[in-house]
Amino acid sequence: MDSPRALAADPRDGYLFWSDWEQAAPRIERASLAGRARRVLVRADVLGDGAWPNGISLDYRARRVYWVDARSDSIHCADYEGADHRVVLRAHPALAHPFAVVVFEAHVYWTDWRSNSVLRADKWRGANVTVVQRTLTQPFDVKVLHARRQPAAARNPCAANGGCSHLCLIHSPAERHCACPHLMRLRPDGATCEPHEKVLLIARAGEIRGVDLDAPLEHVPMQIRLECQTIVRS
């Protein structure tokens, strides 16, 4: 990942979606919530003049991913596999510089930095563009809080924490992978974490990286503890 911008998740299918501004390959990507099976769904630069995929949102009922592009000033959608791409709205006076987006029922909502407003339109045809709210400054994110925006899976592989001692990550509707906090690692049983603090520390400008001597190709996130000593002088 070069310049990730926004993300959205569907826990029913165990999917994580995100947009990336990388200049050489601006795109929408998908992986499982366990960080596996990563793939590119859509290349924004092959959809015309789009190259700044900004906000991203999911239509849970239709299983479609929506995103706004701040370079072509447009709203797009595709299915969860990246197919059936559609341009919802483009070249509209109210769509001048979209930043964030959210889908709810029959509408798509977005924030616009040039008009300082929150707007909405029909999520399929982009019709009936309406200003929902004017703002004094550039609006950043926008969310819809409703039970229908909180989908529940029929079966959750991480129910009862999936048998994991610490972190349970959904990989698919029927699969889960256990993970561990910093300075811990999985035991051979694949479910239990144990302390693991014997790592090689490598420091460079702005970064301290840990290397597992048993698995040197795996990055070990480090928690650096800074201790301060107070000296009281009379």
Rank of each mutant, 00 (worst) to 15 (best):
H76G: 00
L167Y: 14
M222Q: 13
P4Y: 03
R225T: 08
C164V: 04
R64Y: 03
E218V: 15
S234D: 15
D141G: 15
D69T: 02
N128P: 00
V101Y: 01
E175Y: 00
L183F: 11
V118L: 10
A6Y: 14
I224V: 15
S117Y: 02
I28D: 01
M1A: 13
P98L: 05
S165L: 11
E207W: 01
A8K: 01
E81L: 11
E227Y: 10
L186I: 09
V88F: 01
A152T: 12
A24F: 14
S72I: 04
V131C: 10
K198R: 10
H76Q: 09
H107G: 04
R176G: 08
C178N: 06
C180K: 02
R71G: 07
C180W: 00
L89F: 06
S3Y: 07
L95C: 06
D45Y: 10
Q150E: 14
P188S: 06
R27T: 01
A159I: 04
T192W: 04
R176W: 02
M1Y: 13
Y109N: 05
P181C: 12
P173D: 05
L89R: 08
L167D: 05
S57K: 05
D69G: 11
L136N: 11
G210V: 02
A174C: 12
H177V: 10
R209K: 14
L119M: 13
D112I: 02
P181S: 12
S74R: 10
T111L: 15
R38D: 09
D59L: 08
H182A: 13
Q223R: 13
L201I: 14
W113C: 10
R155W: 15
L89Y: 04
A62C: 03
V118Q: 00
P93A: 08
E22R: 11
Q150I: 14
